[in-house]
Design a protein around this nucleic acid. Structure first.
Lengths: 205, 205
DNA sequence: ACCTGAACACCGTTCAAGT
DNA sequence: ACCTGAACACCGTTCAAGT
């Protein structure tokens, strides 16, 4: 691999990014999201960092929102990857459900501003399926846990929805400080585990 | 009551709001929130609507954020009022838990942008208790439902937390369109009801 | 095809000055 | 005490012009 392929955005060799500007914009946006928080993102600051004029971004994205939707798209791909990453061998389906829940919370805590961007600017384009894909691993594990009797019978989508919404609520309330302000939880990971076990006692192996 | 007390912000009689500017700013902010959405709020637009210079707001609020925190404060008071409003007579504790859940979802749907502002700009000042107060009605109902055996035994705060986070997750995912995009739910009210009953089957009277 | 430079209306915030 | 007017740096976006 040449240097140009490795770090195209870092090379201040010239005013042109050889078509890699799009990728550089997305990477830079994620950097700003991490450093400044998701409400403080600025397209002008992004252009300044990359060493390009603000107008240059408009060759690759319709507007600020479209750029953030592309960032969001990456987020869904990475969330899906995190949820499908191999687990400890021989885990029963119920434990797999819990593990997916903990991973969801962990992803949101480790990528707080990316996570919040993902739900503020959902990636309508270029494929709505990324959001469906991210939901699929939970669906699969819930179905398996129903088969072993660790989760109640009934529509798999319904049970998976309950689990997802409850994890999501826990996460966003934790991220904006509501839960710690009320002295309700310490660790979001422990809270996810105990919440799931209170809702579905059968999840314990 | 004089006209000045009834509609101080509407009267273009003079440049002064007789100390009622603070209230007019908050009311106007809520109007903009409803019309433009919670990310599009602008302090300059607010000043223009009320017929005052942008700098005037800084007599009453430290900055834009402080103004939105005051709006948020009102939101928590109204949420608390909605959750404590009298219920149908003779409701068993389990049904009261469900009713509170439905009211939470209804409040968030009817005041979507106010609701989102409440969690984006939490009212640290002038009294953190409003957020605790809003949690209290659920705590009370959960405790009563535990006594009748409609909810499992254990720490009341834990059970209440599970119910709150799960309702909150359902609501925010519904508000940003994630659930309808995935074709997961129709009505958030029905979804709240069935979610609670899936998690805690004893809630049925 | 890809990017710059200059311009537009708008934003949040500050501060001296008016009443 | 309460508000105005003018100014500041900054923002998202457009568009003609450069290479």
């Amino acid at each position: 691999m040449s240097d140009a392929q490795l770090e195209p955005a870092r090379r201040s060799a010239g005013p042109y990014h050889h078509g890699a500007l799009r990728a550089a914009l997305i990477a830079g946006a994620r950097e700003i999201l991490r450093e400044r928080g998701h409400d403080a993102f600025s397209l002008n600051e992004l252009a300044r960092r990359i060493g390009v004029s603000p107008a240059a971004a408009y060759r690759h994205f319709e507007n600020r929102e479209a750029l953030l939707r592309a960032v969001s798209f990456e987020g869904y791909e990475e969330l899906h990857a995190a949820l499908t990453r191999p687990m400890a061998a021989g885990l029963d389906p119920g434990s797999r459900v819990i593990e997916i829940g903990v991973r969801y919370v962990a992803f949101s805590a480790d990528n707080a501003d990316l996570f919040l961007t993902m739900f503020r600017y959902r990636p309508i384009r270029p494929g709505e399926t990324v959001t469906v894909d991210a939901f699929a691993p939970l669906m699969e594990a819930v179905g398996a846990a129903q088969a072993t009797g660790q989760l109640p019978a009934g529509e798999t989508r319904q049970i998976a929805l309950v689990i997802w919404t409850s994890l999501h609520g826990l996460t966003v309330l934790y991220l904006n400080g509501a839960l710690t302000a009320l002295g309700l939880i310490e660790s979001p990971y422990e809270a996810a585990r105990t919440s799931l076990q209170i809702q579905f006692p059968g999840l314990k192996p």
